[in-house]
Amino acid sequence: MNAPTPLLEVTDAGLKIENRWLWRQLDLRLSPGCFLAVTGPSGAGKTSLLRCLAGQIPLSEGTITGKETSIAMIHQDLQLADGATSLMNALGGCLRRHSFWSTFLSFPTKERTEARRLLEQFGLSGKENQWASTLSRGERQRLAICRTLLARPHILLADEPVASLDSTWGDRVLGHLKETSQDRNGCIICSLHDESQVTRFADFRLHLDESTPEGWKLQSVRKDKTS
């Protein structure tokens, strides 16, 4: 990942939780347009790494530096407002761009149009006025993705974003995330379990080792030309 101006640079980073190092001496440089897949067994620290990059957990050692840019995360547990409609949940992504009063009762038409377009792309048209609590797990996952995309982040962190989706929707979502990120000249760091999705979508793979904190491996993903 040699690029002149990285969006995010992680140097000699380590995270220790309850006297156990999850990973140490981690070095990463994330360039614009890059898709990094984070893989590894459960408990290896994939979610913790994403949360560190999002600034939600402080590193135990090392540094994270980057350009002044926007970061947004798709959480594994989705974190939707169950008592709000799908449309209002999706519009939560654009709050950063508006004042409290301009979003108190309604949202600007431009944002509503974009939110509706995203919901339609992710198969949620016709469910805009349905409470999030009444959606299926897969629909909720796609809704959480719409909300994060509406935030228009440069660095998109995604914690198993397709875990509840079938392979068709999973591929569509990953393809959409990649395309959007490249259009914005941003990058994606995404934890994935499906080997074929890693091969098809990721440019690089960071494999975390559960047994050895320093045993992580960063590899370029060789693209299968037939896929």
Binding site: A72, H75, A81, D82, G92, G93, R96, R147
Partner: peptide
């Protein structure tokens, strides 16, 4: 949900 929105800015 509140925390997620805070993290989105």
């Amino acid at each position: 949900a509140q925390q997620a929105l805070r993290s989105l800015g």
